[in-house]
Amino acid sequence: MMATKGTKAIYPGTFDPPTNGHLDLIARASRIVDELVVAVLRNTQKGTPLFTVPERVEMLREATAEFANVSVTMFDGLLVDFAREQGAKAVLRGIRAISDYEYEFQMAMMNRKLDPELETLFMMPAEKYTYVSSRLIKGVFELGGDVTSLVPPNVVERLKQRVPGNGK
C-alpha cells in the first residue's frame, strides 16, 4: 500500500519496554504516513508486565518527542475498533523473523476479515535490531547484562529504577 495524503496508521504493541527496534520502525514509518499513532495495549495476555501502561506511554512519548506526526496513546479491545475510532487506514507491524511473520499474518488476516478497509503494513527493523525483543531486553537486564545500545536512554534509566542491582 502506498501512503497517500492524509494517511493515518496505528502501531500497536505492548512495548514493555520500548526498544530501539520499536523506535527504528516509528522513525521510518513517520516518513511514510502523515500521522502515526503508537498505541500501547492495555490488556495483554503476555504475562505480568515490568512497566505499567502509563509508564510505557510516558517512555514512548519521551522517546518520540522529536517526531511531529507521532502520538502515543493506550487502547484495549479490538484493534480494528480502535483503528476505526482513530480514522486510521493502516496498521504497522514489525517483522523480525519468519516466526513473527506467521503470527502477524494470522492477525492481519483476522483484522482484514473484521475490517476489509484496514491494511496491514509489515516493516523489518534495521538489521542491527532484528534479534531485539522487549522480552529479551528484560531477561538480559535482569541478569545483569548491558542493554544500553538496544533501548533509548530514558528506558535504561527506568530499567535501573525497576530492577535493583543492575547498574549498567
Rank of each mutant, 00 (worst) to 15 (best):
E66N: 07
E119R: 12
V140D: 05
M74C: 12
K89R: 14
N20F: 10
N20A: 08
A39G: 08
V140T: 14
K89S: 15
I137Y: 01
I137P: 02
I95L: 15
A126E: 12
N20G: 11
E66P: 01
K138E: 02
V53M: 05
S149V: 11
D115V: 12
V40Y: 00
L50E: 02
T130W: 06
D34L: 08
A88E: 03
E119S: 14
L50V: 06
R28I: 08
E85M: 12
I32K: 05
T19G: 05
Q106V: 11
F75N: 02
M124D: 03
R28S: 07
R28G: 07
A108K: 04
Y129W: 10
V151H: 03
K89A: 15
G77Y: 02
L118E: 04
R96M: 12
E127I: 15
V38M: 02
Q86D: 04
K89H: 12
V147T: 09
Q45S: 15
F51V: 11
L143N: 12
T120S: 13
M123H: 09
R56D: 00
V155K: 01
T73D: 00
A88C: 10
E117A: 15
V155T: 09
R93A: 13
G139M: 06
E55H: 03
E66R: 02
G47N: 05
G47V: 10
E55A: 14
D81Y: 10
L114V: 12
E102C: 10
D76M: 07
T48E: 11
A63T: 01
S133D: 04
R112W: 10
K113Y: 15
R61G: 04
K128P: 06
R93T: 11
L41Q: 11
I98A: 14
M109W: 07
G77K: 02
A97C: 13
Y101W: 11
I32Y: 08
R112Y: 13
E102Q: 14
P152Q: 01
T148R: 15
N20Y: 09
I32T: 11
T73F: 01
E117V: 12
P49E: 02
K46L: 13
V70D: 00
R96H: 12
T130S: 14
V70T: 00
K113D: 08
R84I: 07
L78R: 05
M59E: 00
L118M: 08
L36R: 02
Q86P: 08
E58W: 00
A88W: 06
A29S: 15
E119F: 14
